[in-house]
Design a protein around this nucleic acid. Structure first.
Length: 291
DNA sequence: ATAGTGGCGTCCGCAGAATG
DNA sequence: CATTCTGCGGACGCCACTAT
């Protein structure tokens, strides 16, 4: 039994499987290597730690996991403290749009309350943020909250923003419905990547209405969508939020489409700094809505 | 889709020799 | 005596593949 075996055992138990662990372990390692290490550990202990298919801890495995979990889960914290990091620290993940348009205000008020706060920002959208949380790369994420969170991830909704289409200012469209009133839609659609939850929600709503309109151009951020719309590439899918729509474009509300909830996600118990962050995030969201 | 196997290459630690 | 160099062997990871 060596510490490396135990570390891999920890990740496998934590993520509920070898492949899941391989995807989330914060350094590069592939599934066969983990598989072999777990077998070696079981061999060294002359016992079975996991049932396979479905992959699940045995009672021996449970015992070992209870013993090692506090050690491995506490490593990031002790590392921080050994680095002399008594200063509160928060690692925040969110899409670039949120980083640019929303986070500065939150961090401003957060730093008033915690002047020596250190923070780091990582960009990513919902699914990546969930992965980052599970891998303990970030402490909190701010994102659209569509669908169900994976096991262990908690959420707090901050704001609901209506979906909208963004069109060039000078285009003739007066309403979103006008775009799809004909049988064939000849306007290109610009969206976030199709894997994005908001994009999927939009497609789902369109299917309900019996309309086929698929993205011609997928872009990495809402800004880019709006930017390319302003350049005349087509019509974009966006949210009606203060400050995201630059000159040269105009929003068409998507009537009877669901709003997109935005909020904070985290894993396990939120640290005091994390809680302060959520409080400030909520009050900034309320101010943005003018409530 | 996920766990396990085999072959192969790489890396790392150890022991012993060489050096200052 | 401490440090550096060198060669060797084992542990481990990756890729390609099979089994379920």
């Amino acid at each position: 039994m060596n510490v490396h075996h135990l570390e891999l055992f920890y990740y496998v138990a934590r993520h509920g499987g070898i492949s899941a662990a391989a995807r989330r372990i914060p350094y590069g390692i592939q599934q066969p290597a983990i598989s072999a290490q777990i077998l070696q550990l079981e061999d060294a202990l002359s016992t079975t730690l996991f049932h396979r298919r479905p992959f699940q801890l045995t009672s021996t495995g449970e015992t070992l996991y209870r013993f090692i979990e506090p050690f491995f889960s506490g490593l990031p914290e002790i590392e921080r403290s050994l680095r002399g990091g008594a200063a509160p620290r928060l690692r925040i993940g969110c899409p670039e749009t949120v980083q640019r348009e929303y986070l500065p205000a939150v961090l401003r008020s957060l730093r008033k309350r915690l002047p020596n706060l250190q923070f780091s920002l990582l960009s990513g959208r919902l699914e990546q943020l969930e992965q980052r949380l599970l891998a303990q790369d970030i402490d909190v994420g701010v994102s659209a909250l569509i669908g169900k969170r994976p096991e262990g991830i908690r959420e707090q909704e901050l704001i609901q923003l209506p979906m909208a289409l963004v069109v060039p200012e000078k285009s003739g469209f007066s309403a979103a419905e006008k775009i799809w009133e004909h049988d064939r839609i000849d306007v290109p659609l610009l969206t976030l990547p199709q894997s994005d939850p908001m994009c999927r929600l939009f497609q789902q709503e369109m299917r309900k209405r019996g309309i086929d309109w698929y993205p011609s151009l997928e872009l990495g951020s809402i800004e880019l969508v709006t930017r390319y719309v302003a350049e005349g590439y087509g019509v974009g899918l966006t949210v009606d939020a203060p400050a995201v729509n630059p000159e040269g474009t105009r929003l068409l509300p998507l009537r009877d489409f669901p709003s997109v909830p935005f909020g904070v996600i985290w894993m396990g118990t939120l640290s005091p700094v994390g809680e302060t962050f959520v409080e400030e995030a909520r009050s900034v969201a309320r101010r943005m809505l003018g409530v």
